[in-house]
Design a binder for these strands. Structure first.
Length: 251
DNA sequence: GCGACAG
DNA sequence: ATCTTGTCGC
């Protein structure tokens, strides 16, 4: 972690909380940091929104991952800024510990952003996590940034009742008798999204913002654009470091 | 002990 | 997450 990134970390976040030596410490970090989560709307008026996502290669011996942040204006949702960064994954993907794998890369991309958004949609869960510390919450607490978790499949919990088929249909996401988020059908004949508070955003606020950012696709614009951007930079980087492109038809 | 398990 | 084009269904 360089100084650019270090300067952005919220006060009181120990270095070994970001890159723990083992899963036991990682687990303790999640439990300790989860206590800082703010589940109410505590963010400035939203003028700029952002989406973040990562992309990686199937069998990359170097373990590289590319992270992108895309900033959009509100309410137009036009892309106004983008930043990306490549990082080496410290740990493999382990359900429940995604943040330790992806957040470092996201921080590097974040540090390169010229304009900072007021609210961020993250690809993954917020508090809908075994210890209430999914990647959206992780990123939010580390940067003390308002975030919303937008996951494409469940990690823990299940909808309170069968979800309606119509776009807009929603059900509380329940786990161990607690409500952790909302299951939302964003598009006809598409699997639902699993929304939850990341940091400084209420449950209702999370659902409201995701709904307001839908533009006919399953994913809300910020996250959708971030997904496209991350794939783009990865492919560009890979193409630029490949042996030799196949020769096209001459003449 | 067994099964589940974001990206 | 990613590998991958066309194809089946609404």
């Amino acid at each position: 972690m360089d100084q650019d990134v270090a300067a952005l970390i919220a006060p009181g976040i120990r270095p070994d909380w970001l890159e723990p030596p083992d899963l036991a410490v990682a687990r303790e970090a999640q439990i300790a940091l989860a206590a800082r989560v703010v589940r109410e709307d505590a963010h400035p008026p939203v003028r700029l929104l952002a989406g973040v996502d990562i992309s990686s290669q199937r069998f990359d011996p170097e373990g590289r991952i590319w992270a992108s942040v895309v900033v959009l204006d509100w309410p137009g949702l036009a892309v106004v800024a983008r930043a990306s960064a490549m990082a080496r994954a410290t740990i493999p993907y382990i359900p429940g510990y995604l943040g330790f794998r992806e957040v470092p890369a996201l921080l590097a991309a974040w540090a390169r952003l010229a304009v900072k958004p007021d609210l961020v949609l993250v690809d993954g869960h917020g508090i809908a996590h075994p210890r209430g510390f999914g990647i959206a919450t992780h990123l939010g607490v580390v940067l003390d940034l308002p975030t919303i978790g937008v996951a494409k499949s469940p990690l823990v919990g299940r909808p309170e009742a069968p979800l309606g088929e119509e776009p807009g249909a929603a059900q509380p996401l329940l786990w161990k008798g607690r409500r952790l988020g909302t299951v939302l059908r964003t598009k006809r004949r598409s699997n639902p999204l699993y929304l939850s508070t990341g940091h400084r955003v209420s449950e209702a606020g999370a659902v409201r913002w995701v709904r307001d950012c839908l533009r006919g696709y399953r994913l809300p614009e910020p996250t959708r654009q971030a997904h496209l951007a991350a794939n783009e930079v990865r492919r560009a980087a890979l193409a630029g470091s490949l042996p030799a492109p196949p020769a096209g038809p001459a003449g």
